[in-house]
Every structure is written in C-alpha cells, then in structure tokens.
C-alpha cells in the first residue's frame, strides 16, 4: 500500500502550530508543501540538492525551542546521505527528517532511484545512530508520524512510502532572498 503525496503532506502539516519550521526539499516536496498552503515558516528549496537535511540541522540547533521538519524526497536524501551520519552525531531533539520515498526521480522522467533497488533509508538512518524511526506505509502510521511530529522529543527519521505520481505543480516564489527574509521575520530573528 502506498500513500498519495499531497494528502500525506496535508496530514503532516495540518494543525502544524506556530512552532513548526518546515524545510521542503528540492522538487516535488516543495510543490507539495506549497500546495498544502503557503506559510512564511516554510523555507522552500529550488536547488541545493542534497542539502535539505543539513539546513534542517543548522536551523534546529539555532532554534531549540521550535520544531524543525525536513520533508524531502528519496533522490534528494540519497545525494546527501552523509548528512544522516552528521545528524546522527548531533541528534538535536527538535529535528525530524521525513523522506517521501517513491523510488523514482519524479522531476526528471521517473528514472528509478536506489531505494527502488533496495537501498533502505531507514536502515541507513538507524546505522547512523538515529534511534527514533518510523516506516510509514498506511494512513494509521501516517497519523502516528503526525502525532510524533507534534510531540517531537528526539531526532526522528521517517520514511513515507508514497505513490509515484505527478500531481499538478504548485510553485512558490523562486526568490531565495525573499524566502529567507520572510522566514527570519516570521520567527522574529533580527536582521
């Protein structure tokens, strides 16, 4: 069983609360987050492939009183796999890394990713020392993940198995400076 990506994103970000900061990864997860509803506390990525998890780490360390959710795709995560090792050594209690895994590179023509060939991102996260992990394959587990995200107390890694589909693109602004400034302003960071 697989989940539909937009519905999964909506479930995770419903009642997100003011203290949830979201870093969607390059590509489909950025469109998903924008489709669910634009928010100043989303820092959408239009590039920096492989960097989403590390942006989340820097943000989580800087903002220990807020929760940080990196929500990215399997291809984006695979490009920055070393970040899981780095995060495993830091383990900020307020960081969740959530990978929407459809086993393909949806933006470039549905070529298979390594996860389709059996590379196990949950296993990698575990081997890197991230103790709290969730394998999400159905609605019940997705609700579990949403609950854990609300009460985040330790670094969490979740793999969400989604269908390989391409819903219509919903594009947020591409102006990186504007995205940065509005994000910082929304959490009261001084210029």
């Amino acid at each position: 069983m697989t989940l539909e990506r937009r519905a999964a994103m909506a479930t995770l970000l419903a009642e997100r609360g003011d203290d949830l900061l979201v870093v969607p990864g390059l590509g489909s997860t950025t469109w998903d987050a924008a489709a669910v509803g634009d928010n100043d506390r989303n820092f959408y990525l239009w590039g920096a492939m492989g960097g989403a998890a590390m942006i989340g780490l820097g943000l989580a360390i800087a903002q220990p009183s807020r929760r940080v959710a990196v929500i990215t795709g399997d291809g984006e995560m695979l490009m920055g796999l070393g970040a899981l090792a780095t995060i495993g050594t830091q383990c900020p209690p307020n960081l969740a890394i959530i990978v929407f895994d459809n086993g393909v590179y949806g933006e470039t023509g549905m070529q298979p990713s390594h996860t389709q060939a059996g590379v196990d991102l949950l296993g990698v996260a575990g081997a890197c020392g991230i103790a709290s992990r969730l394998d999400v394959r159905d609605e019940d587990r997705l609700e579990d993940l949403a609950r854990q995200l609300k009460n985040l107390r330790e670094t969490l890694f979740a793999r969400v198995q989604i269908a390989a589909a391409e819903p219509p693109r919903v594009l947020p602004t591409r102006d990186g400076v504007a995205l940065k400034e509005r994000f910082r302003a929304s959490i009261g960071v001084k210029p």
Binding site: F43, G50, M54, I55, G58, I61, G80, K180
Partner: peptide, 15 residues
C-alpha cells in the same frame, strides 16, 4: 558541502 547548508540553516534560525 554539508557545512554550506548547515550555515544557511543556522542563519535562518538566527545563528
């Protein structure tokens, strides 16, 4: 390269 991304996240959060 991880550090470039980390520094961006840090700045987003005011560090």
């Amino acid at each position: 390269e991880e550090g470039v991304a980390l520094a961006a996240g840090a700045w987003l959060g005011g560090d």
